[in-house]
Design a protein around this nucleic acid. Structure first.
Lengths: 185, 185
DNA sequence: CTCCAATGTATCCACTGGATGCTTTCTGGC
DNA sequence: GCCAGAAAGCATCCAGTGGATACATTGGAG
């Protein structure tokens, strides 16, 4: 083949970025467990093996999508101006992107440890939490612990809500519940 | 083939149970993502397709292993005589069976909802928590919320510890941290 | 202009979960 | 006691997957 049009064939330009976007779309639709490199490659119009020039393996692509999502989450959290809104923003992000949130929370243990850029993206969110939950009358260690507790409550609560273990009538009830838990954390 | 020895061939006796055991062993060694029906079948000495007589699909096998693990967890929790020991037992179980615990917490959202026996197994643990954390001066609804908070803290804390986000020096520190968090929950 | 390192392609492989159709064994109603 | 039907296991097939190796095309640096 190799259509000799010259223009815009072969060299893709931004395969990495488009692959991440296509992967995210696929995950939104069918979950991250079902992600297939071949389908992503097809969606972008490229041989499936070409993705390996940009991602070491399937896991690396998933990590890249997750990383991007953590950055997006942090951006939304940045707009929150108080604790209540922080909780609402966090829960809102999770509930409106369930498949993506599932990906973020289920990265294999160890991925975080060996993927510095991913860990950095996660910490963007923690930083936002610190901005709102830290209090001057506490030591920085105490503040850090308090913030971790808040995040644990949100993360854990969302996971159990998604699993149906935490049975609450609807999403608003979840927000209310988590707000209360966080308030006296 | 069909060696005509008559004795102890063909009918397996307890394929389901042995398959679950073999699957658990495989998960302990290589994680649940890597579980292969064929390897399980080989380990038990059976055609891979035979497993489908006992499990609808791969997910069902994973769910069965998870269910068994939840029952085992509840059994260990039953021995706890106070809140501190409860936390220690919970964390101890998670840390000494990391691969199994990862399986338990990462069942696809929805598995719980449509698998009643699995959900029942989960509630065994919740019942144990209620036994220790409920207080007579609180309404049953309040007690239920308090207990859920405890479980959320444990579950979420363990997940974040495993991911390396919650950076603590060692397992004892984690137990101490979670005990403190749960204490003033 | 030429050479080279990226980037993308073509083709192969072992392996996976799952489907179909068959045989063997067990068991409960007569 | 027997025998029909259900349950359990087997052999064989399939499409799809992630990954490996070897090659083609390209844009840029010298």
């Amino acid at each position: 083949m190799t259509s000799r049009t010259g223009r815009d064939t072969y060299r893709h330009g931004n395969l990495r970025g488009e692959a991440i976007a296509a992967a995210r779309a696929s995950i939104v639709e069918s979950g991250h467990e079902a992600l297939s490199l071949r389908r992503v490659a097809d969606a972008v119009g490229v041989a499936h093996r070409s993705l390996y020039n940009h991602f070491e393996d399937r896991e690396a692509l998933l990590d890249a999508v997750a990383e991007e999502a953590f950055v997006a989450l942090a951006a939304e959290l940045k707009a929150a101006t108080d604790a209540g809104r922080f909780v609402a923003a966090y829960v809102g992000f999770a509930l409106s992107n369930p498949a993506i949130f599932a990906l973020m929370t289920s990265r294999p243990h160890g991925a975080m440890k060996k993927r510095p850029s991913l860990q950095r993206a996660v910490h963007l969110g923690i930083t936002e939490a610190l901005r709102l939950f830290a209090r001057p009358d506490r030591s920085s260690a105490e503040n850090r612990r308090a913030v971790m507790k808040v995040i644990i409550l949100l993360q854990g609560g969302l996971a159990m809500y998604a699993d149906g273990i935490l049975d609450l009538p609807d999403d608003e009830a979840l927000v209310a519940e988590l707000r209360a838990m966080v308030a006296d954390a």
